[in-house]
Measured scan of single mutants.
Amino acid sequence: MTYKLILNGKTLKGETTTEAVDAATAEKVFKQYANDNGVDGEWTYDDATKAFTVTE
């Protein structure tokens, strides 16, 4: 299944996707991606759209 990450960081904005077996796996991938790019903020998840959002 495809999951999307929407980044609303102070220095990094954009979107990326990942293929994962479930939302928990996608969340781990996205949190590592955000951490690697220096984005740390409030996380939300919308199951209807399979989209995670992180806002700094």
Rank of each mutant, 00 (worst) to 15 (best):
T17G: 04
T25W: 06
M1Q: 14
K28A: 13
E42Q: 11
A23G: 04
K28L: 13
D46Y: 03
V54L: 12
E15L: 08
N37P: 01
F52V: 01
T2E: 09
D47P: 15
T44Q: 09
V39L: 11
T25E: 14
A24P: 09
L5K: 01
T55V: 08
Y33P: 00
A51P: 00
N8T: 08
T49M: 11
V21M: 13
A23Y: 13
A24L: 11
Y3A: 01
W43L: 03
D40A: 12
T53V: 07
T2N: 06
G9V: 10
F52W: 10
D22Q: 03
T17K: 07
G38L: 06
D36L: 12
T17A: 07
Y3G: 03
F52G: 00
G38K: 07
E56F: 10
D36P: 01
E15M: 10
G9M: 13
T55G: 04
G41Y: 03
T49C: 06
T11N: 13
D47S: 12
K4S: 06
T16K: 11
T16S: 08
G9L: 15
A20N: 03
K28W: 09
K50T: 04
Y45S: 01
I6D: 03
E56M: 07
E15W: 13
Y45T: 00
L7Q: 02
G9Y: 07
Y3Q: 02
D46L: 03
K13V: 10
Q32K: 13
K50C: 06
T2H: 07
N8Q: 09
T53N: 04
K13Q: 12
I6G: 02
M1F: 15
E19F: 15
Y45A: 00
G9P: 03
D22A: 04
V29Q: 08
N8L: 12
Q32I: 10
T55Q: 06
N35A: 15
G41A: 02
A24D: 10
K50H: 13
E56K: 04
N37W: 14
A24T: 10
E42L: 13
L12Q: 09
T16L: 15
W43D: 00
T16I: 15
V21G: 09
E15T: 13
N37S: 09
D40C: 14
A23N: 05
K28D: 06
D36A: 12
D46I: 04
V54A: 03
A24W: 10
D22E: 04
L12P: 04
D47L: 06
K10Y: 11
K50S: 05
Q32H: 06
D40P: 04
N37I: 14
T11A: 10
D40Q: 14
A26W: 01
T44M: 08
N35V: 14
Y45R: 01
L7K: 00
A24E: 11
D22R: 02
L5Q: 01
G38Y: 06
I6E: 04
V39K: 02
N35W: 14
T44H: 11
G9H: 06
T17D: 05
V54D: 00
K50D: 02
V54G: 00
V39Q: 03
E56H: 07
V39C: 04
K13Y: 11
K28S: 10
E56N: 05
E56V: 09
L12A: 07
T18K: 04
I6M: 06
T25K: 05
D36I: 11
A26M: 01
L7I: 15
F52Q: 01
A51N: 05
G9K: 04
